[in-house]
C-alpha cells in the first residue's frame, strides 16, 4: 500500500540553505546538496525547499540550488515561496523541481492554479494553505448568507500576516477543483510551538478533499508526526526544526511511525 511520507523542509535565502529560530538569527546550515543528500540517505520521501527571500531580486538564486540538488539527489523536490505565475512554474520545473507550491498568488488570482495545472499537470501544483482558527470575534462575522460564520479556520496570506477572510475548508475544495494536486496545510496557531499539529484542522481538510494533504506546523516530537497521520488523516507530514537541529533523524521518525503501524518506506 501507499506509504505515508515524511518531508523535511529546507529554508533557502540568498542562494543558501539556512536555519533559524522563529525567522530570526538565520544561520548558514551548509551546502544544499550535502543537506539534501543526507536527508535522502536517512530515507526522506521528498524534500521541500521554501524560498524565504523577501525580495524578488534574490529569488532567482534558488534556481542554481535546485539544479545542483536535482543532479545529485533523486527524490521528489518541491519549491515554495514567491511562486506567482505559470512562467515561475516553468522555470522551477526546468531547474529540476518536481512540484511548485503556490500560496499568496493563488489567493490573489485563483485562476493561476487552473492555468498552471492545465499546462503542467496537477501532479506538479501544490497549494500551500496557512490556516488559523477563527477568533470569537471572527466567528461572529457574517458569511455569504448573512449568518455568523461560527467556528472554523480562516486562510491567511503574505506569510501569515494578512487574514483573507476565506474559509479554509471551502478554499481547500476550490483549489482541488481548480487542479491542485496536493495541499500543504500549515496551522498558524501551532507553527513554531512544538505542540503538535492542529489535528482537527488536518482531519477536516483531509476529509474534505480527494487530493493528498501534507500536514505542517507544530511538530515537536515523533508522536506528533504519527498523530498527523493516524488522527489527522494526513498523507504526508512535513517538519523542519526537529530534523535541522538534529533532534531526530528522518530514519528515527520513520521507525517510530512504523512501530505505530503506519506504512512507511524503510
Amino acid at each position: 500500500m501507499l506509504a505515508k511520507r515524511i518531508i523535511p523542509c529546507l529554508d533557502v535565502t540568498g542562494g543558501r540553505v539556512v536555519k533559524g529560530v522563529n525567522f530570526v538569527e538565520l544561520r548558514d546550515a551548509g551546502d544544499p546538496v550535502e543537506i539534501a543528500a543526507r536527508y535522502n540517505e536517512q530515507g526522506a520521501d521528498e524534500l521541500t525547499f521554501l524560498d524565504i527571500t523577501a525580495t524578488s531580486d534574490g529569488r532567482d538564486l534558488i534556481l542554481p540550488i535546485i539544479e545542483a540538488v536535482a543532479s545529485q539527489v533523486f527524490i521528489p523536490l518541491t519549491v515554495g515561496g514567491g511562486v506567482r505565475t505559470v512562467a515561475d512554474v516553468r522555470r522551477l520545473l526546468n531547474a529540476g523541481a518536481d512540484k511548485t507550491s503556490f500560496n499568496s498568488a493563488a489567493i490573489a488570482n485563483p485562476q493561476v492554479i487552473s492555468e498552471a495545472s492545465d499546462k503542467y499537470g496537477s501532479q506538479c501544483i501544490v497549494v500551500a494553505i496557512d490556516a488559523k482558527r477563527r477568533s470569537a470575534e471572527a466567528q461572529q462575522q457574517p458569511d455569504a448568507s448573512g449568518q455568523p460564520r461560527g467556528p472554523g479556520w480562516n486562510v491567511f496570506s503574505h506569510g501569515g500576516r494578512k487574514d483573507t477572510g476565506l474559509d479554509a475548508v471551502q478554499w481547500a475544495r476550490e483549489m482541488a477543483q481548480r487542479g491542485a494536486g496536493e495541499l500543504l496545510l500549515t496551522s498558524m496557531d501551532r507553527d513554531g510551538t512544538k505542540a503538535g499539529f492542529d489535528l482537527e484542522l488536518t482531519r477536516t481538510i483531509s476529509d474534505a478533499v480527494g487530493i493528498p494533504v501534507i500536514a505542517s506546523g507544530g511538530v515537536g516530537t515523533l508522536e506528533h508526526l504519527a498523530e498527523g497521520v493516524t488522527q489527522g488523516g494526513a498523507d504526508a507530514v512535513l517538519a523542519a526544526s526537529i530534523f535541522h537541529f538534529g533532534t531526530y533523524t528522518v530514519q528515527q521518525a520513520k521507525e517510530y511511525m512504523a512501530s505505530r503501524g503506519i506504512p512507511v518506506r524503510l
Binding site: 500500500m1 501507499l2 506509504a3 505515508k4 511520507r5 520521501d45 496537477s122 501532479q123 494536486g181 496536493e182 483531509s206 476529509d207 480527494g210 487530493i211 493528498p212 493516524t230 488523516g233 498523507d235 504526508a236 503501524g261 503506519i262 506504512p263 518506506r265
Partner: peptide, 19 residues
C-alpha cells in the same frame, strides 16, 4: 472515490508517493 484504505483514510487521486 468513496473507498477507504486499510488504515481508514480515504483513497486520494492522484496516487502520490511511494508504493
Amino acid at each position: 472515490e468513496g473507498r477507504l484504505q486499510p488504515d481508514g483514510s480515504r483513497y486520494k487521486i492522484p496516487q502520490m508517493g511511494w508504493n
